[in-house]
Design a protein around this nucleic acid. Structure first.
Lengths: 302, 302
DNA sequence: ATGAAAGCGCTAACAA
DNA sequence: TTGTTAGCGCTTTCAT
């Protein structure tokens, strides 16, 4: 194994100089830098992660905790994961994968044994039992999801309130005046009601004959129900992109890549001691598909 | 941070004794063991991963490289991943997730910086560019998949030869005498032909009027084709469980959990210096569903 | 701008 | 059965 001392000898400098060339933590003369970099290349030197972690108290590892509950949409989960690992690499970090199965103990282990510089916890389960623990963690932590109370946390998620509003706005634009909310969470409903109030749209609590448009969440579970809808009822969904695509649904997608990236950025910011918002929220994007292809007004005109 | 010296002091023993209690690498008197364990609990001691890695040259981390090509069935991939992490934990190891995007460099980095004790590479791409590198790796490596040449490797996969044979046998049992192979790999085809020879079954290279049963692989791509088949043609598939379930197909499933588990076991065995086979192959299991619900003979009898 | 040297927290000889 | 101690390879003061 080639170690820093070997490089130092080869470049005729002190080991610390090699270290500083690598870390950039102090000025190095061009000549020395050149020699050191040359030696590193020549010898194929790669710093020992453990030694580095021990001396610097940085592991260059991010722990990522993923949920394995039934009900999580696996392809979306996977997109989160790959987005996180890709972004982490850009910060010269690797990703340690923990599964929910380990629960709190996983977090404690990571923290206790200094396995990671930061922890990203994915979960949309609003009242997670690990939330208190997450608040007390020394290790910088970022939560992907929207807990009821984000105090002392760093959270990132889609702006579900805005998403609800956007869905209503779209239906309103098409001329719909009576819409129903199906399977929507509180935040989406709030957003929908807020938008409805300003747009003169009535929000029904359940389907009735006046309803000409519906906003649905949790589409996978409602798929068969959707098929029972009259074809002239407009549907706007809040669901994974692929599901929306498959069913040709106008929808606000969960921006998995964005969320994953931002989660890493937040984690790194915290690690650098920068202040970050407790709640980061991503603007929704609505993609129009067949389920709202025809406007209410044109239907009326027909 | 509580360190081993703190525990040692608290338990009135030497640091090394604490270390040995933890590792079990030398006999400890019951009394001392009790005291040490008590102190560990009282102080909430957790060994520093980096320090441990530096001193013992073991990281207790397994690197897992997953493919992200389009075409990989994500749910199955995820089942591999969770199976690997779960089994790894039972060996007191964590999982570092690398994505294929990094290619060879990822492997070199893991090895060069001593990030992991072992590497598991998932890939069914037969002629992977990383294969030569994998052969030369110092770090114990296990390949999930079936490369053309497994010399100097440790591979684990479903026994596709046996799977092909099993499919033919099942069709033969049902009275089929003319079967076709669709989308099958060489190994499956070999197994199918071998079984066909002993069972008096004709294997057609393409669909024709004599064919009463087909063996399909790569089902997702063939889904629409399957719908064009006459309903009395029996279908046996080699595909993920969930796909088979959704389409109600008699099938040999890819045993993701088993493969993941065994991959970890192989990696740990190699790490312990135990000799392992170059190729480990898992016996196929065939689940009977609607696509072969009626035997040929009973159809003829009708 | 560079070097020397003291640890980081742990494991594993080596001693007893 | 237990203790003492010399590193593991790196970072980071402290000197110069």
């Amino acid at each position: 194994m080639v170690k820093i001392a070997d490089v130092a000898k080869h470049a005729k400098v002190a080991p610390s100089t090699v270290s500083y060339v690598l870390s950039g933590k102090r000025p190095i003369s061009p000549e020395v830098r050149r020699r050191v970099e040359e030696s590193i290349r020549a010898l194929g030197y790669q710093p020992h992660a453990g030694a580095r972690a021990l001396a610097s108290r940085r592991t260059n590892i991010i722990a990522l905790v993923i949920p394995l509950r039934t009900g999580v949409h696996v392809p979306v989960l996977m997109r989160f994961v790959t987005a996180v690992t890709a972004r982490a690499r850009q910060f010269d970090h690797d990703v340690l994968l923990l599964t929910q199965g380990e629960g709190e103990r996983g977090l404690q282990r990571v923290q206790g044994s200094s396995l990671a510089d930061a922890i990203i916890v994915m979960d949309d389960e609003l009242n997670d039992e690990r939330l208190p623990l997450l608040r007390d963690l020394e290790t910088p932590a970022v939560l992907i999801g929207s807990p009821r109370d984000s105090t002392d946390l760093t959270c990132i998620d889609l702006d579900f309130h805005a998403a609800g509003a956007k869905c209503v706005a779209h239906l309103a634009d098409l001329g719909h005046r009576h819409v129903a909310l199906v399977g929507t969470t509180a935040r989406v409903a709030d957003g929908a009601h807020a938008a409805a109030a300003t747009r003169g749209v009535e929000v029904a609590t359940r389907m009735d004959d006046h309803v000409t448009g519906v906003i649905v969440q949790n589409v996978p579970a409602l798929e068969s129900w959707l098929h029972t809808l009259r074809p002239d009822v407009a549907v706007v969904a809040i669901c994974p992109d692929e599901v929306a695509e498959r069913l040709d649904l106008t929808a606000v997608a969960l921006p998995a890549e964005d969320v994953g990236r931002r989660a890493v950025e937040l984690a790194m910011a915290k690690l650098d001691g920068e202040p970050v918002d407790a709640e980061t929220v991503l603007a929704p994007t609505l993609t129009i598909r067949a389920s709202t292809a025809y406007s209410r007004s044109s239907q009326l005109a027909e």
